[in-house]
Amino acid sequence: QGDIVVALYPYDGIHPDDLSFKKGEKMKVLEEHGEWWKAKSLLTKKEGFIPSNYVAKLN
């Protein structure tokens, strides 16, 4: 089961498979690959890669 993270900063995706998000948006982490994680937005239901240093895990 994936962790839920919250965006600390907004992110505008650079690549087509990036997931753009707004500050405060919550996402479910699907896979962790070093600095880039695959996640699904709980708001938009879209999936893509996010920079892990832009988010914090919720406990």
Rank of each mutant, 00 (worst) to 15 (best):
H33L: 11
G48K: 01
N53V: 08
P10W: 08
Y11S: 03
F21I: 03
L42Y: 06
K57G: 07
G48E: 00
A56I: 15
G2V: 09
E31Q: 10
K23Y: 07
E47R: 06
L8Q: 05
E32L: 14
L30K: 03
K38Y: 15
S52H: 09
K40M: 14
E31L: 08
I4Q: 04
H15Y: 13
D17I: 06
Y9V: 07
W36Q: 07
G24P: 00
Y11E: 01
P10Y: 08
D17A: 10
G13A: 14
Y54P: 02
A56F: 10
W37E: 03
P10H: 13
G13S: 11
K46M: 12
K28R: 14
F21E: 00
P16Q: 10
G2E: 10
V5L: 05
E31G: 08
G34Q: 05
T44N: 06
K28T: 10
P10M: 08
I50K: 00
D3R: 13
K22E: 09
D3T: 15
G13W: 03
K26I: 15
K40S: 09
T44C: 03
A56M: 14
V29H: 01
E25C: 03
K46F: 08
K38N: 05
S52P: 13
P10F: 07
L58D: 09
G2L: 10
G24F: 06
A39W: 01
F49A: 05
E35W: 14
V5G: 02
L8T: 04
E31P: 01
W36A: 05
K40W: 09
M27L: 11
F21L: 01
K26G: 04
Q1A: 13
K45L: 15
Y11L: 03
H15F: 11
G24S: 04
Y9A: 08
K45T: 10
A39N: 01
L8H: 04
A7F: 01
Y11A: 01
W37R: 07
Y54I: 07
H33N: 12
L43P: 03
D3I: 15
K23H: 06
H15C: 14
K57Y: 14
I50Q: 00
W36H: 07
D17N: 13
F21N: 00
G13C: 05
F49R: 13
E35Y: 15
K38G: 03
T44K: 02
F21Q: 02
V5K: 01
N53Q: 11
E32D: 15
G13L: 03
P16C: 11
F21P: 00
P16V: 10
D18L: 07
V6S: 04
A7E: 02
H33C: 14
T44W: 02
V29R: 02
H15E: 07
I4P: 02
K45Q: 14
V29M: 06
V55K: 01
N53E: 10
K23A: 11
V5Q: 02
H15V: 05
G34Y: 05
K23R: 10
T44G: 03
K22F: 07
D17Y: 12
K23S: 07
T44I: 02
V5T: 02
E32V: 15
A56E: 13
K26P: 07
L58W: 12
E35T: 11
A7S: 04
D3V: 15
I4V: 09
E35Q: 13
Y54G: 04
K45D: 14
H33T: 10
W36P: 04
A39H: 01
P51S: 04
A7W: 00
P16I: 09
W37D: 03
S41L: 04
S41F: 00
N59G: 14
E25A: 03
W37F: 15
E25L: 01
D12Y: 12
